[in-house]
């Protein structure tokens, strides 16, 4: 391989990895004063600070939020995707565009607009957050499942029907297992929307719903607590990363 190509690839790898290096170093640093190139003292002070700031309950909240959003947006997206993969929906193009509109509209704008309304209707903050994030996740799940259903051959279900399976059984025993990788992918994306959201939780949650991203932001906006910021950041990256690897391995095995 030419030297130029090798250098270029090394540069690209550095580009992808470099921003994550400070997180790893700082997360394990008890003391790291400039201009030292590496921390002078390693330890778990950052972890301790993070836990003290409520990282445990916050990550629990984020997990629940992600799971609820995934549990709502995945089946709804799968149903809509299935309908839109066929030609049965009247004005299918317009319906798809409407379902994709949350991708286009800035989340803060939607949250600001709806916040006032939700306050007037006395909708609990957490319900409002779940509603908005589910809507934000639906474009992903719909598009993913629409693609999956378009590639899925309905002949398999017809075969199952002629072999004696009821319509319901054909969906459960044939369609869903065959679409499991796509469903897992859709659920993962929806989980990610809930898990990593900041601005909607901030605006609609009104400060009552303290999730992990809110802790990261509040820690990162003050100075002198780099280790805590790094631990909280890693804490919000590693769970979805592990999920992604798990989903990827599952997909490869199939």
């Amino acid at each position: 391989m030419a030297l130029g190509t090798r250098l270029g690839r090394a540069a690209l790898a550095v580009w992808l990895l470099l921003p994550l290096v400070p997180l790893v170093l700082w997360a394990a640093a008890d003391r790291w004063t400039a201009p030292a190139v590496l921390p002078q003292a390693w330890g778990t002070a950052g972890l301790r600070d993070a836990v003290d700031s409520g990282a445990g309950t916050a990550s629990l909240r984020s997990t629940v939020l992600g799971l609820v959003v995934a549990a709502l947006a995945t089946p709804l997206g799968a149903m809509a995707g299935r309908a839109l993969a066929g030609s049965g929906v009247p004005a299918g193009g317009a319906v798809l565009a409407a379902l994709l509109s949350p991708l286009v509209l800035p989340p803060f704008a939607v949250a600001l607009g709806l916040d006032v309304l939700l306050l007037r209707l006395r909708v609990p903050a957490s319900v409002g957050v779940v509603l908005l994030l589910t809507v934000a996740a639906l474009p992903y799940t719909t598009v993913l499942m629409r693609t999956a259903y378009a590639a899925h051959d309905p002949g398999f279900e017809e075969e199952a029907r002629t072999l004696g399976a009821t319509a319901r059984r054909a969906v459960l025993a044939v369609q869903l297992p065959m679409l499991a990788p796509a469903l897992a992918g859709a659920a993962f994306l929806a989980f990610l929307v809930g898990w990593s959201d900041y601005v909607v939780t901030l605006l609609v949650g009104g400060g009552q719903l303290v999730t992990l991203p809110l802790l990261v932001a509040s820690a990162a906006s003050s100075v002198g607590n780099e280790a805590q910021v790094a631990v909280l950041s890693l804490g919000s990256v590693l769970p979805p990363l592990a999920l992604l690897v798990a989903v990827g391995l599952l997909g490869r095995r199939r």
């Binding site: 051959d153 002949g155 398999f156 017809e158 075969e159 199952a160 029907r161 002629t162 072999l163 004696g164 399976a165 009821t166 319509a167 059984r169 054909a170 025993a173 044939v174 297992p177 065959m178 499991a180 199939r254």
Partner: peptide, 30 residues
């Protein structure tokens, strides 16, 4: 499913998530 007719299509349409045996056992299982 209640007509008692089984069909073989031009494409084999074997369920990819099942083993050969479980494909053949499908009608009995349902």
């Amino acid at each position: 499913e209640r007509r008692g007719m089984a069909m073989v299509f031009q494409r084999p349409l074997l369920f990819p998530h099942l083993s050969v045996r479980d494909n053949v056992a499908f009608a009995d299982r349902v």
